[in-house]
């Protein structure tokens, strides 16, 4: 059922949406409302596709098994060969659907992080304000993100091989309702470590471990005509200013062991809130 629904949504996509599913990259400026109109359908499609794919492997296995099992009986009877062919066809059909959806799959950050983040920014900005968005959802361990390789060799075991990747996957900026300028950048720094060691029996084993640092950089330019530094602001926060703006930077780090994880949305919102905690409006504060 999920596949039929996902396919029906897919068939409604315009050229830009189809291109995004192919390239997994996006760059442009639209109002948050327009971005949501474009992206929410893709998010719904991705959710349905994930659901369908999670079931399809089981189906492929089941139809494949039944096909082979029935085929064995064709040596005795004639009829089961048609049944075996039918089961084989069902297995093949499910496999094709699975492969199709796999090709369109977007990283979960897209629907669990980016789309709600745009919804938050829609509430924080004026209706006509444009949101600049640059997104790259290609696999973070692709060759273009590879930045370093280190190898620790000794006379014996263990031996270490480490590959480092840096994936800058999201940049966005928008002017908020209070005329502050918000810029966000999200980056994943990944270490893939391969350890080869010998067990007590002398057997050589290789294990691969991944560690990911999810970095969020927040910068808010507060207009000086409306804000002043808060009396109790954190002295460690990076703070600079020019004639019109106070610029406050905040970095948030989150560590995980999977490239599928991401910094939680609440942590990013906290990071933006941190910058707001460093200022106070030039009004009659209550």
């Amino acid at each position: 059922m999920s596949y039929t629904e996902a396919r029906a949504l897919y068939d409604q996509f315009d050229e830009a949406q189809l291109q995004f599913l192919t390239t997994k990259t996006l760059e442009g400026s639209h109002t948050p409302r327009k971005w949501l109109k474009i992206l929410q359908k893709l998010a719904k499609f991705d959710e349905l596709a994930d659901k369908s794919r999670s079931k399809s492997m089981r189906k492929i296995f089941l139809w494949g098994f039944l096909s082979v099992f029935t085929f064995i009986f064709t040596f005795i009877l004639i009829f089961p060969i048609l049944l075996a062919a039918w089961f084989a066809y069902l297995a093949y059909k499910n496999w094709k659907q699975h492969q199709f959806l796999k090709g369109q799959d977007l990283r979960n950050q897209f629907r669990k992080f980016l789309v709600p983040l745009i919804q938050i920014l829609r509430e924080e900005s004026a209706e006509q304000e444009k949101l600049y968005l640059k997104l790259d959802l290609n696999h973070p361990l692709s060759q273009q993100n590879h930045v370093d390789f280190q190898e620790r060799k000794g006379p014996g075991y263990p031996k270490f091989k480490e590959n480092y990747y840096r994936s800058s996957w999201l940049n966005m900026s928008i002017k908020l309702r209070d005329q502050s300028m918000l810029s966000l950048a999200l980056e994943d720094v990944i270490r893939k470590r391969q350890v080869t060691k010998t067990g007590s029996s002398g057997k050589i084993k290789t294990k691969t471990k991944t560690k990911v640092k999810h970095l969020a950089s927040v910068k808010v330019g507060f207009p000086k005509v409306q804000y002043q530094p808060a009396a109790d602001r954190n002295p460690e926060v990076v703070f600079s200013e020019d004639a019109n703006l106070m610029l406050i930077k905040w970095k948030q780090k989150y560590t995980s062991s999977s490239i599928e994880d991401n910094i939680p949305l609440s942590e990013l919102v906290k990071a933006i809130s941190q910058t707001y905690k460093q200022v106070q409006p030039l009004g009659n504060l209550v």
């Binding site: 309702r177 005329q179 330019g221 207009p223 005509v225 019109n244 409006p281 009004g283 009659n284 209550v286």
Partner: peptide
Amino acid sequence: GFDSRDYDSFSLTEDTVVWD
């Protein structure tokens, strides 16, 4: 967050500040 009481002196006009 800040609400309207905190922003009594605000004039929420588009030309208040120019992001360069």
